[in-house]
Simulated assay, not measured.
Amino acid sequence: MDLGTHLASKLEPFVLMSKSAKGAAAAKLVQDATSAHGVYVFGELLELPNIQELSKSEQHQQYYSLLQLFAYRTYQDYLQHRDALPQLSPTQITKLKHLSLVSFAMERRILPYSDLLQALQISTIRELEDLIIDAIYLDILRGKLDQKEQQFEVEYTMGRDLEPDKIGAVLRSLEDWSETTGSVLTTLDNKLSSLSSQTVALALAEEDHKRILTTNLKEILEKQKENKAAGKRGMAGGSAYRKDRDDDSMDVDDPAESSKGKNRKASQEIASKPRSSKRNRF
């Protein structure tokens, strides 16, 4: 459930009773509504004819102003115009301070204790924190008490009644917000389109890189295979060359051995022939 959405139902009994209440009874109804526990919105009651008539009565006009105070304004406004308003009870003062907290929270996210103490005419931080805690339990705002920094950090707040003469300003603010939001969405769409294009380009670049890497690796492997094959052919050629050299050496040695055999045979023949001697004649 959204914050404060249940509060409108708390006003319904007073709306029903106001249809038959006029004059002093309507004024008493305003006092009761502004004092009732859990009633923090009053716009629907303000619009009713019997309540509107109070603004035209000199005797009861101050009660219509009282209802406007609780619907639209803050405790500071009460201090400035208290002479034109009925005297508030402690319960009404506490409720008006709660509503003032809501108004401050609608304007700023960080509420310094010093500002709140002054605006709400509270003397101690303990009393201020108790007031804020009560408002949180009443589900009219949410936030965090920061005692170290002496401030209240607003997370969420209910909405207050909107004055009729401020509807135009709210509409202009909504139009500005819509225009700003549209510009932000357009910028985000452009960014997303750019990121999408970059993603596609990076994917294509990565694919090209993988393709080139695969081609290079394939070429390197083929080159390595070619080098190994060439090395094997070189080793086979070297072995054949050494074998031919060995055969040539053996062929050169054979004539020498044959020559040695012939020389030995010739020597033997010479030794076997008888020597002829010639005698000298005198």
Rank of each mutant, 00 (worst) to 15 (best):
L3W: 01
T5F: 14
A8V: 03
A8F: 11
K10D: 08
P13D: 15
F14A: 06
S20R: 13
K22G: 03
G23T: 11
A24F: 05
A27K: 06
K28R: 12
K28C: 07
K28S: 11
L29N: 07
Q31V: 01
Q31K: 04
A36V: 01
Y40G: 06
F42E: 09
F42I: 02
L48M: 10
I51L: 14
Q52N: 07
E53T: 01
Q61V: 04
Y64P: 00
Y64H: 14
L66Y: 07
L67H: 02
Q68M: 12
Y72F: 15
Y72K: 05
R73V: 01
Y78F: 15
R82Q: 10
D83W: 04
Q87V: 06
P90I: 05
Q92L: 11
Q92H: 08
T94G: 04
L96Q: 08
L96V: 03
H98D: 06
H98R: 05
L99F: 01
L101G: 03
V102G: 05
S103E: 15
F104C: 09
E107C: 06
R108E: 15
R108Q: 14
R108D: 13
Q118Y: 06
A119N: 07
I122G: 03
S123I: 03
T124M: 04
I125Q: 14
I125H: 09
R126G: 07
E127N: 04
A135T: 01
D139H: 03
I140F: 07
I140A: 08
L141E: 07
L141F: 03
L141A: 03
D146I: 01
D146C: 02
Q147C: 02
Q151M: 13
E155Q: 14
R160V: 04
D161C: 04
E163L: 13
D165G: 02
K166V: 01
K166T: 01
I167M: 09
I167H: 04
V170W: 13
L171M: 11
L174P: 00
W177D: 13
E179F: 04
G182M: 14
S183Q: 15
V184L: 15
V184Y: 10
L185T: 00
T187Y: 08
N190Q: 14
S193N: 13
S193G: 05
L195V: 00
L195P: 00
L195T: 00
T199H: 11
T199S: 12
T199A: 14
T199F: 08
L202A: 11
A203D: 13
A203V: 04
A205T: 03
E206D: 12
E206S: 10
D208H: 13
T215V: 05
L217H: 08
K218W: 06
E219D: 11
L221K: 10
L221T: 06
E222W: 08
K223W: 06
Q224W: 04
Q224H: 08
E226Q: 13
A229H: 03
K232A: 08
K232W: 10
R233G: 00
G234Q: 15
G237H: 14
G237P: 00
G238D: 14
S239P: 00
R242M: 12
R242I: 09
K243M: 10
D247S: 08
D248I: 09
V252Q: 10
D254H: 09
D254V: 11
E257V: 08
S259V: 06
K260M: 10
G261Y: 11
G261E: 15
N263F: 13
K265T: 06
A266C: 06
Q268E: 13
I270Q: 12
P274Q: 15
R275S: 07
R279C: 03
R281V: 07
